[in-house]
Design a binder for these strands. Structure first.
Length: 639
DNA sequence: AACCTATTGGCACACGCCTA
DNA sequence: TAGGCGTGTGCCAATAGGTT
C-alpha cells in the first residue's frame, strides 16, 4: 500500500459514511434534488422513453423521497432557472408514488398483453403518464427544467445542422419487449460531469445523460441492422467467440479438423525422413475433405520436437558442419555464428520442391504459401548461444513459433501474433493456439499488404474472411483480427469489459477519464453489456477504442465524437481528445439555475480503486444542468 | 545501411474476489 | 449491491539479430 494509504482509507470511509446518511449532512443535500426537480426530470424522461427510464428513476427516487420526508428535507425548491416561474407541482410525493404505481401496473398489463400478442407497441405510448407537462408549447419565459432540456435538444440539433441521432432518447423507436420490463439500474455517468457551455459537445448537448443515451442505444440495437450476430452468435450457439476464430478459414468448425494428408514440407525435410504421423495430422484450413491435396503447414512437434528440422541442422552446423549443413544451406560465419539460408532462398527452394511435388494439382501447390522458416532461426540462436534482443530467450524456455509473425510471450506463454506495417508493429492478439496466431498473422498480412505477402497457410483459405473486411482501414483490420483473438476477453464473459454471470452482466471500464472502475450498468445479456462498454470506450477513445463489436456498429457515436473533437480542436488528435476528457472530468461544482448546488461523487485519488457510487440524483441533476448550460450557450451564440 | 521481425520488458488495465 | 483492491495479462515500445 502506498504511503498515506491509511489516511486515504480513512477519508474514503468518511465519504462513504456521508453518502450513506442521506439528507443528514450538507454533502447529502447537494446531491439531492427537490421533489419538483425530480418531477420535471421524471416527466421529461417519461415522455422520452415510454416511461421505462422513469420507472427506473422512480424505483430509486421513492425511497429517497421517503427519507427526505422523514428527515425534513422535503421543502420544495424551484427547478426553473433563476427568475423564472416554477411550474406547477404535480402533487404530493404520496400522490406521485400512487400515480407511478398505477402507471406501472398499466405497463405491466400491457406487457402481459404484449406477450400474448394482443397489445400493439404503440399502445404503450398512449398509456397516460402520471405527471403531465403543461399544455402548449413551452417558452423560455415559463419553461421548467424539463422544457429546457427539450429545447436544448432542439437548439443543439439546429446548431450542429444535424438531426439527433436515431439512438438518442428523443428519437427512439418504442421497444415493446423492454419498455415494460424491469428497468435497468441507474449507473454512474462520468459524462454527466459538467463543463463550461462552450465545451459541451453536441452529443452531450442533445442527450439527457450518458446512461440514458446508452440505454436508448440498447433499445435501438435490439433491432439493430448492424448487430453482428453472425460474428457473435447467441451464447447457446457459440459460447466463446474464440471458437469462431477465423471460422471461414476452418470451414466454420472452430478448431480445425485433423485430416489425412501430408503437410507442407520444408526444405530440410528433404534431407530427412519427414515425421509423417504428426504431419499427417495437420488440419486442412478450409476446404475440408473436398480438397485432400491441400496442406497448409506442419505441426510444431514435427519441426521442433523431432530431429531433422532446420533448427537441428543449424545446431549441428554450429558444431562444425555436417552433411546436413551442406544440404540445408546452413553455413558458418567467420565469427562462428550459424548462418541460415535466407527465407527467400528457402521459399524458392520450397517452391522448386513443390513444383516437383506429387500433390494433386498445380493450383494447390501454387496456392500454398511460403513455409514457416523460423524454427531454424530460433533453434540456431539457442544453440549458438547468442545474446541480446531476440536471443534473450531463457535457457529452459520453449522455443518460438515456427510460424511467421508469431512469437510466444515469455511470461504468459501465450502465442502472440504481430504484423509490421510501415515499420510499426501491430499487435494482433494473444492466442492459446499457435496456429490461430499464425492465421491471425496471415489474415492481417493479406488484408493489409495484399495477396503477394508470404503467409503461413494458403491465402485462399482466407477468402471468406477477407471479403468480410475488404475496404476497411488497416486499423480496422487489425482490430477485427485482434477481436477474434482468444485473449481479447479474459474473464467469464465472452466480451471485453463485461463481467458477472448469467442474467447479471456488468459493463465496466477500469479507467474512464479521471475515474476508475466506472460501471455502465447491469444487463441481462452479455451482448448488451458489451455494447455499453463499447460506447463508453468510443466516447473516451474514439476510433482507438478496442471495442467488442466493429466500430461500424457505432457509426453515430464515432461520428459524434469526431465531429465534436473536430469542432472543438480543429482536428481529431489523441492529445485533443485527452484534453477534452480532462476538461470533461472536472468535478461538478456549478451553481444550478435555481441557485442550489449539485455535485457528483468526488473524483477518486489516484490509485484508489472502486466504482463511483450510483448516485442517481447527482448524475441526473448534473446532466440536466449541462443541458441548461447548453441552452444558455446556444442562446448566447444566437444573440 | 536500411529494413524486417522475433523477443523481451513492463505499464496499464480488465476482471474477479472480498468487504461493508 | 456498490465499492475497494489485488492479480494476471493485454498490449505497446524498445531492442537487437537477421536479411536484403
Amino acid at each position: 500500500m502506498p504511503s498515506g494509504g491509511t489516511e486515504n482509507k480513512k477519508n474514503d470511509s468518511q465519504q462513504k459514511t456521508r453518502r450513506r446518511s442521506r439528507g443528514g449532512s450538507a454533502e447529502a443535500k447537494t446531491n439531492d434534488l427537490s421533489a419538483e426537480d425530480w418531477n420535471f426530470l421524471l416527466r421529461w424522461q417519461g415522455q422520452q422513453d415510454d416511461g421505462n427510464w422513469t420507472l427506473a428513476l422512480a424505483e430509486r427516487l421513492l425511497p429517497v423521497s421517503e427519507a427526505r420526508q422523514s428527515t425534513g428535507h422535503a421543502e420544495p425548491r424551484s427547478s426553473a432557472p433563476a427568475g423564472e416561474p416554477s411550474p406547477a407541482s404535480a402533487g404530493s410525493l404520496e400522490q406521485k408514488e400512487a400515480s407511478l404505481g398505477e402507471y406501472r401496473e398499466q405497463v405491466q398489463r400491457w406487457e402481459q398483453a404484449q406477450r400474448q400478442g394482443a397489445a400493439p407497441a404503440a399502445q404503450l405510448r398512449s398509456l397516460p403518464f402520471p405527471f403531465h407537462l403543461a399544455q402548449g408549447a413551452p417558452s423560455p419565459a415559463n419553461a421548467g427544467l424539463g422544457e429546457l432540456l427539450s429545447m436544448a435538444q432542439q437548439a443543439s440539433a439546429q446548431q450542429n445542422h444535424a438531426a439527433a441521432p436515431s439512438c438518442w432518447p428523443g428519437s427512439l423507436p418504442p421497444s415493446p419487449t423492454k419498455a415494460a420490463g424491469r428497468p435497468k439500474r441507474e449507473t454512474s455517468s462520468p459524462c454527466s460531469t459538467t463543463a463550461p457551455p462552450n465545451l459541451v459537445p453536441p452529443w452531450l448537448g442533445q442527450t439527457i445523460s450518458f446512461t440514458t443515451w446508452f440505454q436508448g442505444s440498447r433499445q435501438e440495437q435490439e433491432g439493430d441492422l448492424h448487430a453482428p450476430a453472425q460474428q457473435f452468435p447467441s451464447p447457446g450457439a457459440s459460447p466463446d467467440p474464440a471458437r469462431t476464430l477465423f471460422a471461414d478459414a476452418r470451414g466454420g468448425s472452430g478448431r480445425p479438423e485433423r485430416r489425412p494428408g501430408r503437410p507442407r514440407r520444408q526444405p530440410l525435410e528433404r534431407a530427412h525422413t519427414a515425421p509423417s504421423d504428426a504431419a499427417a495430422a495437420w488440419p486442412d484450413a478450409s476446404r475440408g475433405a473436398s480438397d485432400p491435396g491441400a496442406h497448409r503447414g506442419k505441426p510444431r512437434a514435427a519441426r521442433q520436437g523431432l530431429r531433422g528440422g532446420r533448427g537441428e541442422a543449424a545446431a549441428e552446423a554450429s558444431q562444425g558442419g555436417t552433411e546436413l549443413e551442406a544440404m540445408a544451406g546452413v553455413t558458418l560465419t567467420r565469427a562462428g555464428r550459424v548462418r541460415l539460408p535466407s527465407k527467400r532462398s528457402l521459399d524458392a527452394a520450397d517452391e522448386d520442391f513443390l513444383d516437383n511435388d506429387d500433390s494433386p494439382t498445380g493450383a494447390d501447390r501454387k496456392s500454398a504459401a511460403a513455409p514457416p522458416s523460423k524454427a531454424a532461426k530460433g533453434s540456431a540462436r539457442i544453440s549458438a548461444g547468442a545474446g541480446g534482443g531476440a536471443q534473450k530467450r531463457q535457457p529452459g524456455a520453449a522455443a518460438s513459433s515456427v510460424f511467421r509473425g508469431v512469437s510466444r510471450h515469455r511470461l504468459t506463454q501465450r502465442w502472440e501474433a504481430s504484423l509490421w506495417l510501415s515499420g510499426k508493429q501491430m499487435y494482433l492478439g494473444g492466442y492459446v493456439n499457435e496456429e490461430d496466431a499464425a492465421r491471425a498473422y496471415d489474415l492481417a498480412a493479406l488484408a493489409c499488404k495484399g495477396p503477394s505477402v508470404p503467409t503461413n497457410f494458403a491465402a485462399a483459405d482466407y477468402e471468406g474472411n477477407l471479403s468480410e473486411i475488404r475496404g476497411s482501414s488497416r486499423e480496422e483490420i487489425v482490430a477485427w483480427v485482434r477481436r477474434r483473438s482468444s485473449a481479447f476477453s479474459r474473464g467469464r464473459s465472452r466480451f471485453r469489459g463485461v463481467s458477472g454471470q448469467a442474467g447479471h452482466w456488468e459493463a465496466r471500464i477500469g479507467t474512464f477519464g479521471d475515474r476508475k472502475n466506472v460501471s455502465f450498468g447491469i444487463h441481462e445479456t452479455e451482448e448488451e453489456a458489451a455494447r455499453q462498454y463499447d460506447r463508453a470506450l468510443i466516447i473516451e477513445k474514439g476510433r482507438a477504442a478496442k471495442a467488442n463489436f466493429p466500430l461500424g456498429v457505432y457509426d453515430v457515436e464515432v461520428a459524434s465524437f469526431e465531429n465534436f473533437v473536430a469542432k472543438r480542436f480543429g482536428g481529431c488528435t489523441s492529445a485533443a481528445a485527452r484534453a477534452f476528457l480532462a476538461e470533461m472530468a472536472l468535478p461538478f461544482d456549478e451553481t444550478a439555475p435555481n441557485g442550489s448546488k449539485a455535485s457528483l461523487p468526488p473524483v477518486r485519488e489516484k490509485n484508489r480503486g472502486g466504482r463511483p457510487r450510483n448516485n442517481a440524483a447527482s448524475i441526473i441533476y448534473a446532466s440536466a444542468l449541462q443541458q441548461s448550460l447548453a441552452v444558455r450557450g446556444s442562446a448566447a451564440a444566437q444573440t
